[in-house]
Structures are given as C-alpha cells and as structure tokens.
C-alpha cells in the first residue's frame, strides 16, 4: 500500500492516537480511570446516535431529526415512568417513538418525495414541539426504579453497563453494515440509486431502513440518557446533533475514505469526545468546543465530500 493510501485510510485515526498521547502527557487526570470511563460513557451516547445517522447517510439521506427525536423519546420515557407505568414498558415506548419517527422520515422521503434535508428538518421541529408539549416545558425528575437506573449508571465489575452495551451494539451494527446483504443494499442505494434499482434492489426499502435505523438509534440512546441522568428534559439531546454529525463526517475520512462507515463513526466519536474532554481538562473556555466542532465538520467534508454532497444536493 502506498504511503498516500495509508494516510487516506488511517491518517485521522493516527491523529486520534496522537491526540490520546498528547492529552495523556499534558492534561492532568486525563488518564485517571474515572476520567477515562467518563470519556467512554460520553462516547457511548454519541456513537450510538451517530451509528443511526451513519446508516441514513450510507443511503445518501440526511437525518437532521435524530437529536430531537432522542429528546422526544426521552420525555416519553420520563412521562410514562412518572405516571407509574412499569419501566420496561416505558423503555419500549421510548424505543418505539424513535422507530416511528424514523419510519415517518423514511416514508416522507420515499413516498412523499420530500428531500431528507427538508423532511427531517420538519420532523425535528415537530419532535421538539411534542417534547415540550409532553413535559409542559420542564424536566421529569423524581423517583426512578433502581433497575431502570442500572442501565445508565450500573457497572459490571469496574465497567459501566452502558459501555459494554455500546461495544456489543457496535459489533452488531458493524456486522450489519459490512457483512450482510442489507448493508450492501444500503450502500449500493447510496452510491448509485438507479444502478441499485435496476439490479433488483428495493431502493425505497433501503432508504426507509436507513432512516428507521437512525430513529431507532435515537430511541435506544434516549433510554440510556434518561437512566444516566435520572431526568428527562425536552432538549436533553440537543447538543448531540452537531457532535453526531461531526463524528460521522470525521469517520468518513477514515478506513473507507469518502464513505460513511460504522468503524469510522466509532473512532470519530472517540476523537470528538477526547477533544472535548481534553479541552475542559486543559482549561479551555466552553465556547472553544463549538468552534472546534465547526472546524471538524468543514474540514471532514472538504476531505471527503462525495456522499454528503449527493445527499445535500438531492433537492
């Protein structure tokens, strides 16, 4: 493999490794186990959401609703538990909320033919409004079943449950995207929809699957967010929108350059959380993170634009 190819495929990941070494040396407490677990927990939330966004983007569709859908699913869970519904049912309802939002997005794109950039912007706003409607603008706090909280705060041995769950989920979605027919069909649909259709691939189904997975990921993440914070608020996942997009786009500069890919998204999530964490530890002001995210988004796309440009300009 040529040096250029190695840099194309692994450059960003190596830079992430460099960042890890840099922070280990210069940021106090970065290497403490408390901090590292904290980083991995944040990576868990972010990567779970970003996996969903990645699947949608693989089919060349943008899901700009996932963060608000996640917040909506969170308040659905909070609302149900606060009205004494058994927590497993509340969890199922939260996951179902994400699933249905994804299905709605999928149908809007494939049946109503509204470009995803617009339709998911619309559903994002609807989800946000519904979340405020359900909560009346405040957060659900109060008594939570310890079994439910275990999902967000529990540990198996020294390792938080959520980190283990995320690793298992990562292996599942990695397999789904790279080792199954469905995964290839999503990719073919995103690469050349007409070619995929003429090869007998049901491209509408593929796009619906991509957007449903994005909604589903938002619903699943909501469960862990609520269980971790033991509260549910209408904007609680808002910050994940830009972070999730940045993680996915950064991932597109790795492994299979210019293509959204699950492994890249995972490493991208690691890098972004490490950066945020490192900036805090190094005493940077909070607004530096926003500037950093913006730079990452723009640079990533400048480096690897093809699929994203197709998605954005399918207007």
């Amino acid at each position: 493999m040529s040096t250029r190819k190695v840099i194309e495929m692994y450059g960003t990941a190596l830079a992430g490794l460099g960042l890890f070494v840099f922070l280990s040396i210069f940021a106090n407490n970065f290497l403490s186990s408390a901090n590292l677990f904290n980083v991995l927990k944040q990576v868990s939330f972010l990567s779970m959401l970003a996996f969903g966004f990645t699947f949608a983007l693989i089919t060349s569709e943008l899901d700009l609703a996932f963060a608000n859908v996640c917040s909506l699913a969170a308040v659905v869970i909070g609302f149900l538990i606060s009205t004494d519904v058994a927590w497993p049912l509340a969890v199922a309802a939260g996951v179902a909320t994400g699933f249905l939002a994804g299905l709605l997005n999928g149908l809007l794109v494939t049946v109503a033919k509204v470009p995803s950039l617009i339709s998911t912007l619309g559903t994002a706003s609807i989800a946000n409004g519904l979340a405020f409607m359900i909560t009346g603008g405040v957060a659900f706090v109060g008594r939570w079943d310890p079994n439910f909280l275990f999902l967000g705060r529990g540990k198996l041995g020294p390792i938080p449950v959520i980190i283990l769950f995320t690793l298992v989920l990562f292996l599942i979605v990695l397999t789904l995207s790279t080792q199954t027919r469905t995964g290839v069909h999503l990719q073919a649909t995103g690469e050349n929809e007409e070619a995929a259709r003429r090869s007998g691939i049901d491209t509408r189904r593929a796009k619906i699957i991509g957007l449903v997975l994005s909604g589903l990921a938002a619903g699943i993440t909501a469960v862990f967010l609520v269980a971790n914070l033991s509260s549910a608020a209408p904007q609680m996942a808002g910050d994940f929108l830009l972070n999730g997009i940045a993680a996915t786009l950064l991932g597109m500069t790795m492994f299979t350059p210019a293509k959204p890919n699950i492994l890249g998204t995972f490493v991208g999530s690691l890098i972004i959380v490490m950066l945020s964490n490192g900036l805090v530890l190094l005493g940077a002001q909070y607004y530096i993170q926003d500037i950093m995210l913006g730079i990452i988004i723009i640079l990533s796309v400048a480096v690897s634009a093809s699929v994203l440009k197709r998605a954005a300009f399918a207007l």
């Binding site: 290839v184 073919a188 690469e191 050349n192 070619a195 995929a196 691939i201 293509k259």
Partner: peptide
C-alpha cells in the same frame, strides 16, 4: 456503482 468494487457490482442485488 463506480465507487464500488468489480465483484460488488457483478453481484449487486
């Protein structure tokens, strides 16, 4: 699909 491999194109679908 130009950005996919030969074998992926041959077996597409």
């Amino acid at each position: 699909a130009a950005d996919m491999s030969i074998y992926q194109n041959i077996f597409m679908g």
